[in-house]
Computed example of a mutant assay.
Amino acid sequence: MHPSNSFQDTKIPLVHGTGAIPAVGFGTLIRDPVAAKEAVKVALEAGFRHLDCAELYSNEDVVGHAMREAFEAGTVQRKDLFVTTKLWNNNHRPERVSPALEASLGRLQLDYLDCYLIHTPFAFQPGDEQYPNDEHGQPIYDSGVTLMETWRAMERLVDEGKCRSIGLSDIRLEKVKEIVAAARIKPAVVQVECHPYLPEWELLEFCQQHGIVLLAFAPLGHGMEPKITDDPLINAIARRVDKTPAQVALAWAVQRGSALLTTSTNPDRIRQNFDISPLPDDAMQEIRNGIATSVRFNAVVETGVPGFVPQVG
């Protein structure tokens, strides 16, 4: 699946889609538009060929401009880039799915997506508000649509050639199983929080059994406490293999068969996070057996409200 000395060119074939997804991806959840545009350009120059976006991030237009400039500069061609974006919770009604994708394509300045994900399995009240709340500040959910109905609309997007694969995000294994059992076009990708403190072994095993790519977001725990990069075991391995703790945690993710997303606005860190290579087998076993810390940093799987994305308005 990967060359012996680097994970930079590792791709995972999409059994339920077209092509293959680069295992090392760059997440675009960067609030400052100037910083976001520059970070995407640096990431593409460093070699990243997988960009993860979302309507919710409110910067698809910024990412689109960065990609366009990279195309025009000859840094990368569209055919070599894997671009994902996501359907937000207020657009789960089937009649809203295609317009939402078209709007994302317009902002990204693209003709098609490589992958379109349902951002969370929670449907919010349809409308223009991303976070419709009641008088108590609680989300207003939409009981008039099921996740399966939204999925059927996603399948039609593949039929129409608007996206080459579809998938799920911020979701628990039980819900993934429901969709896999009933879907005509199976999920190609399932994106969830995943790192050495939340390894999601059962979900990973299910995904691999069904040809689904598990895509790990927050593979470094989003820098939150307890910090994965401060973990004594990961630091000991990093010293042993002459890599940073971050590089060890990222390599662990790819080596176990998942893809990952890493985000930074620091050019040196962007390049460093792309420069990852296989770990010794004993290091992989140490991480699996020797880390007892168990933490979920983002409660989005409980409510549909992402913990890492500041609410606007």
Rank of each mutant, 00 (worst) to 15 (best):
V248K: 07
V62R: 00
Q209A: 12
V248G: 06
I30S: 03
H195P: 09
W252K: 02
E200G: 00
L105E: 01
K37Y: 02
L147E: 11
S98Q: 15
E72H: 03
P278L: 10
S58L: 15
T84E: 11
V63A: 14
I179T: 03
I140T: 13
V180C: 11
L157I: 06
D268Y: 11
S104A: 15
E72L: 05
L198E: 01
P94E: 06
A259F: 04
V63N: 11
V248W: 09
E129V: 08
D114I: 08
Q77R: 15
A183D: 13
R96N: 15
G144V: 02
V309M: 07
N89P: 05
R256T: 00
K37W: 00
R240L: 10
S4N: 10
A43M: 02
G64V: 00
I21L: 11
R288S: 10
I237H: 02
D268I: 05
R96H: 15
E160N: 07
F297L: 14
K79H: 11
V40K: 00
V15S: 03
D268L: 06
A292L: 09
Y57D: 01
S277V: 03
T85L: 12
I12T: 06
I30D: 15
P232K: 01
D61E: 12
G25H: 01
Y197Q: 13
G27E: 05
P187W: 06
E95D: 13
S264G: 04
V15N: 10
Y131E: 12
A292D: 15
K227C: 09
T150E: 03
E129G: 03
K227E: 14
P99I: 08
A123M: 04
F308S: 11
T84D: 05
E225Y: 08
S58N: 14
G27R: 02
E286P: 03
D275A: 14
P126Q: 06
H136A: 13
L81R: 12
D142H: 11
R239C: 07
R93W: 13
L204A: 13
L81H: 09
Q77G: 08
S98C: 14
V254Y: 10
T75S: 02
I166W: 03
G167M: 06
G257H: 01
S98K: 15
V62Y: 04
G74T: 07
A70W: 03
N298R: 14
P22Q: 08
P3V: 06
E193S: 11
M67L: 07
V34C: 00
A236M: 10
F206M: 08
H50K: 14
E178L: 15
A218F: 02
T244P: 03
V180T: 03
F82C: 00
V305T: 13
S4Q: 15
V189Y: 11
A182F: 07
D170K: 06
E200R: 14
L117V: 09
V158A: 03
R164N: 08
D242N: 14
S143I: 04
K41G: 05
I21K: 04
N90F: 08
D230A: 13
Q208V: 04
V312N: 09
K186A: 14
A123Q: 01
T18K: 11
M1K: 03
H210M: 01
Y141Q: 12
I276E: 12
T244L: 09
K243L: 14
P199A: 09
A218G: 12
C194A: 15
G167K: 00
S104E: 05
S98M: 14
P94H: 09
I185P: 00
Q77H: 06
G137W: 06
